[in-house]
C-alpha cells in the first residue's frame, strides 16, 4: 500500500508540480483546490499525510488546519504547510494552528519527500 498524500493548493501549476513529485516519489497523490475542497476530499481519500498551501480562496490554510484538527478523527493526521518563504511568523502561526511541519516554496523535491517520510506514521 502506498502512502496517500492529499495536496491542497489553489495554483494549478503548484498542484501539477506537487502531483508529479509525489507520484515520482512513489506516493499516491490526491489534489484539492482550496481549504473547502480539501475538507471534502479528506473524508473521501483518508490520506496518510496532507500538504496545504496557506493563501487560498474560500478557506485558507490556517482555517483548513483548524477544521481538520477540530475533527477527532484527524487529530493525529500529519499536515505539512507550504510557505512561500522561510517566514518565521507564518511558520509559527501554522504551528499554532496545529501544523506538523513546513515546506518552503519553491519546494525542493527531495526535501518534500523526506519531510513526508518523517511525519507519515505508516512505513512504506
Amino acid at each position: 500500500m502506498t502512502l496517500k498524500v492529499l495536496a491542497v493548493d489553489d495554483s494549478r501549476t503548484m498542484r501539477g508540480m506537487l502531483a508529479e513529485v509525489l507520484a515520482d516519489a512513489g506516493f499516491e497523490p490526491y489534489l484539492a483546490e482550496d481549504g473547502e475542497d480539501g475538507l471534502r476530499r479528506l473524508s473521501e481519500v483518508d490520506p496518510d499525510v496532507v500538504i496545504t498551501d496557506i493563501n487560498m480562496p474560500n478557506l485558507d490554510g490556517f482555517g483548513f488546519i483548524d477544521a481538520v484538527r477540530a475533527d477527532t478523527r484527524y487529530r493525529g493526521l500529519p499536515i505539512l504547510v507550504l510557505t512561500t518563504e522561510n517566514a518565521e511568523p507564518l511558520k509559527d502561526r501554522a504551528r499554532e494552528a496545529g501544523a506538523t511541519g513546513w515546506i518552503v516554496k519553491p519546494f525542493h523535491d527531495l526535501k518534500l519527500v523526506s519531510a513526508i517520510r518523517r511525519v507519515a506514521a505508516r512505513q512504506v
Binding site: 496545529g98 518523517r118 511525519v119
Partner: peptide, 14 residues
C-alpha cells in the same frame, strides 16, 4: 508534538 500530528516513530525511522 503529538498534538501537531508528529510522531516519534517515523522520526526514529528516518
Amino acid at each position: 508534538l503529538y498534538r501537531r500530528g508528529n510522531d516519534p516513530i517515523p522520526l526514529l525511522r528516518a
